Simulated scan of single mutants.
Amino acid sequence: MGATRRSRIGLVLFAVVLLGLVAGCGGRVGENGRIGVVYMDAQGFYAGVRVGMQQAATAQGDAPQLLQINAQGDASMESTFIDQVSAAKVDALILSPASASASVPAIKLAHRSGIPVVCYNTCITEESARQYVSAYVLGDPIEFGRMLGNRAAEHFRSVGKPDPRIAVVNCEFVEVCIQRRQGFEQALKEQFPGATIVANQEGSTIDEAVDVAERILTAHPDVDAFYGEAGGATMGAVRAVQARGKVGQTVVFGSDMSTEAAQELADGKVLKGVVDISGIAVGELAGKAAGEILRGDSPSYHVVPAPIDLYGTSEQGRAWLTAHPDGVP
């Protein structure tokens, strides 16, 4: 669920080019409606969301045209796209907002333009969401973290480590990541009261996370484990452990499945557990929610629960690779 906040405004005009169209067979593009879609970044989860939304659109019959953008975690780029699709009077807007606060004005504009808004994965503040958002597809982030905290406790119990030292590589510029950590800490400390968080630093993309994790290993060479709050943070921590020769000493518990994460979990030397919300499942739920809203079949604001999965063994890593040969989570 990672994102970068670096400004790329100069790319907006290029990024707004359609990334994909889904139209009814034999019909004209857009004759079955148009939906604006915003992906926070290009990591694997959002590829799954795109597939899921296309599947949901096709399953509902007359599939609408999807106007799509990768906002690259940039609230300004996101805002420009929403301005454009609002002016174009799309039938709905589906997005994972880059910011709980900075994304509010653009979403408010869409709402006031008569465009129903569906959030997924992240959203704006709850007060604003209740005013401007029709549905929010969300896997409970506290439960997400708790599941991984329980897996971490299981591991530390198996290796006889009663007072583990944990470092966090975070994505806490979005609220769901803060809540993931809270759930993780609650579950772990319920079973291991002596567990300590020795560092908590941001590193949401793989390259950023590698640098952050290596610095943490320099400052805390005796750290027992990393917790990666998103996919980039997880794999960056794994690579740092490997690069610093800490395999066998420091393990990683992480978020968001991908081909690389499944391979590392199957290997079993560093990555010991991954909690995941399927992008495909989220995309399907978001697409279905948009369809229900357009038909007038849903309340003005509601949370749509997304399923959460724990992968904690090498066998489960191999099974994921078999089930996802294209790598789309």
Rank of each mutant, 00 (worst) to 15 (best):
R112T: 10
P307F: 04
Q242H: 09
F192C: 07
G236M: 05
R50S: 09
A266P: 07
C171T: 13
R318A: 15
R157K: 15
L138D: 07
G48F: 00
G27C: 15
G296T: 06
V252S: 03
S204Y: 05
G273R: 02
T322P: 09
V37G: 00
F14C: 13
T122P: 08
F253D: 01
D276N: 14
C123E: 05
L265E: 03
G20A: 14
G268V: 12
Q65C: 14
M235K: 04
V16P: 02
D207F: 12
V38W: 00
I124K: 01
A243Q: 15
V159Y: 04
L95D: 02
G30A: 04
C119K: 06
I293R: 11
L19Y: 07
A129L: 04
L13E: 15
E185P: 11
G291S: 09
G245S: 10
D207K: 13
F14K: 15
T125H: 02
V104R: 00
G296Y: 06
C177F: 09
F226K: 02
L138N: 10
V37N: 00
I124E: 01
A281R: 11
A286N: 02
T259D: 09
H324P: 02
S158W: 08
G10H: 03
G73E: 05
V223F: 05
P64M: 05
A199C: 07
G248M: 04
M147I: 12
N170Q: 12
A233L: 09
C171R: 08
N170W: 08
F156H: 03
A319W: 03
S158E: 10
E31S: 14
S298N: 13
T125W: 02
P141V: 05
S278P: 04
P329Q: 14
V270R: 00
G231H: 10
R318S: 14
A71Y: 01
V174T: 11
Q191Y: 10
D224C: 04
V137H: 01
A100E: 13
F144R: 06
G160L: 06
D74R: 01
N70H: 10
A262W: 01
A195N: 03
R157H: 14
G145R: 01
P164R: 03
L294M: 12
S96Q: 06
V198E: 05
R157C: 10
V282Y: 07
F81R: 00
R6H: 14
G268Y: 12
E264C: 13
V328S: 09
Q263H: 08
S134Q: 13
L294A: 09
T58G: 14
L21D: 13
P193T: 07
V168E: 05
P221T: 02
